[in-house]
Design a protein around this nucleic acid. Structure first.
Lengths: 211, 211
DNA sequence: CGTGAAACAGACTGATTGGTCTGTTGTACC
DNA sequence: GGTACAACAGACCAATCAGTCTGTTTCACG
């Protein structure tokens, strides 16, 4: 093999991810990506057959990172004694990382992908669905344990679990529109309070100890 | 005046709104809009100076419709006796309209606009911000009344009010990704339960009477 | 040391893009 | 009935687009 191509490929993906999140997929031209990655057309189409291929590769990598964050949060809260408190700690974990996350990216790649029907139908949305299902499953498990230990009845567990994803994506859009990134942390905090309330946690435990 | 131009202008906006929500703004060409509206290039650029002008006009109209829905929901629940129950009724109002809304549009124009930085910086996002602020203000008022009547302490009212917008937008994305529109109603239902819980409504009132 | 293939570089191409320009048509008003 | 102007229609244009093609460099392996 000649020089390791994966290095340049990652550089292209880095540049493309930033541009696509910032401007959208169709609004980002291959030439722009090439320029930002300081590479050439030959290199780009050596690594990606078409521009749609780039979207797939981009999303695959992003989904994997996303699932990494999910696993990290599960691991960080695995030691929690009470299942309901673990749910709260799980959300707080992202709350504490919110500002750093928002300074690294102004929005979410999922938003850019799901905006364009061509990316939804070409299979890129399926990659995102895998992430959505993973979040749903893991959070539903956390909620099941919490509901059981507190003896509360949560009538649509999957939908409640999905609400975490919904909050993330909605908060990303709120941040974009207003131009202020602090909404992410604020919305995660709201989510934490709401989940605490529905799980019957005492108010003091919900309010105190903010990130 | 010759034949009323506003009729054709509205036809162009209708066609553009559908295409932009479905495919995104940059992925929608002026030629596509012209074809869908069964009109000509001359007509298009007679009504809109540039393509970005179309985005502004599109968003202005969409925001006004959005604010109309907000006002309608406020009016429909104005008769509610208890302020906390009005909050729940307010959300249920959208819950009942969710399926119809999702069959009319597969996503939200706000998502398409906020995806592209060029639209955020050119002032189109400011139009959306007006809508966001209106929702925040009205819902914060509802929540203030509800919190007072129930003697509960909601520590960040604006953020909690914003969570309604966040839920809508996040649910739109969830629907797009999964391809199933029922998530909108489900997420609004989750929102209703969560708000009911944080306002201290008895569980029976939260669960019973689903849309 | 030669050879084959991966990893580029960049000139080139046909199609599409947003936008312009030159008309033509309809009609309100004098 | 002339005239002025809004409301179109559609040919046209330069720029940009995704993608191709022909080379050149680099290196593992025999």
């Amino acid at each position: 093999m000649p020089t390791d191509g994966t290095v340049n490929r990652e550089r292209i993906l880095d540049a493309a991810e930033h541009l696509v999140i910032e401007n959208g997929f169709s609004a980002t031209s291959v030439d722009q990506v090439i320029k930002a990655a300081a590479t050439s057309k030959g290199a780009f189409f050596h690594h990606f057959a078409t521009k749609l291929d780039l979207a797939q590769a981009l999303t695959t990598r992003y989904v994997n990172a996303d699932l990494g964050h999910l696993r990290a949060a599960l691991q960080a809260t695995a030691t929690a004694a009470d299942p309901a408190e673990r749910v709260v700690a799980f959300v707080r974990h992202f709350e504490e990382a919110a500002d750093e996350m928002m300074s690294a990216q102004s929005s979410c790649l999922y938003v850019a992908v799901l905006t364009e029907q061509q990316l939804v139908t070409n299979g890129t949305a399926d990659l995102i669905n895998r992430a959505i299902e993973a979040w749903r499953k893991e959070i539903a498990d956390l909620l099941t344990a919490a509901a059981a230990s507190r003896d509360v009845d949560l009538d649509d567990l999957d939908a409640l679990a999905d609400h975490v994803f919904v909050t993330f994506e909605g908060a990303f859009l709120l941040c974009r529109s207003t131009g202020s990134s602090e909404h992410m942390r604020a919305q995660l905090r709201v989510l934490r309070h709401l989940l605490g309330a529905v799980l019957g946690l005492p108010r003091a435990e919900r309010i105190v100890g903010n990130a």
